[in-house]
Amino acid sequence: MRLTIDHRTTYRFTAPQGRVVQLLRMTPRNTHDQTVAAWDINIDCDARLREHRDGFGNITTMLYAEGPLSGIEISVSGEVVTSSSSGVLHGTFEPLPAALFLRSTPATHAEPALAAFAQAATVGRAPIAALHALNAAVHERFTLVDGRPEAGLTVTAAFARETATARDLAQMFVAAARAAGFPARYVTGYCDALPNGRPTPHGWADAWVEGLGWVGFDPTLGRSPEAHHVRVAVALDAAGCSPVAGSRLGEGREWLDVEVQVSGQD
């Protein structure tokens, strides 16, 4: 497939800012199943950009802009050609051992209820079947809601609810998979096959299966990602690979607006 992506992130400030420094995780890498044909990051003000690679292997961009700034808009556009290997990842850049991703974070610490849920979904199954069963169980247990995920919501709090955003589904899958002994991580990116709602940046998960490697699981869809997904960044949880980590020097509050359009052609 050829996926065309437009992703606009707009910050508006209630008071002018002296300067803005942001860390962007907005650039996909090539893998066996995804070829980045074109990719651009544009900023609506005079900003200096520097490209880096973080410890997880993600491509990051440092953004430095001097004020006074009443807002800043980051426009990402690109084209990615994808194929599918049934969710199994090939050719991803992996600087860290998979076992690192057994580690939990404050947001993904599995309390007994979630661990028991993971146990019930996976018990007695071979690894890959267990993970597919877990993915289906997470998918079925919650009603998907659109809209921006609640900042700082832990998997424990999310698990107690009946509705969940894509981010929370993916974080719960990650926490549950780890509780069942599988290294797992959060993935950010884009998808053109999301059910009904407004297009947003998407989040799903990878889990490690010994002998097979990393395998993608998208609990929003209840199946593994295929040619409809473009991977951008991975980390231990959603906050660790959020598209923007920002800081600003100035008073007042900020308003964030995110618009994503993803269109796919076979």
């Binding site: 973080d54 410890g55 997880f56 860290l96 051992p97 076992a99 690192l100 057994l102 231990l236």
Partner: peptide, 10 residues
């Protein structure tokens, strides 16, 4: 790998 003092970020 499981030790919080090992910082994968860097």
């Amino acid at each position: 790998l499981g030790n919080a003092q090992f910082r994968p970020e860097i």
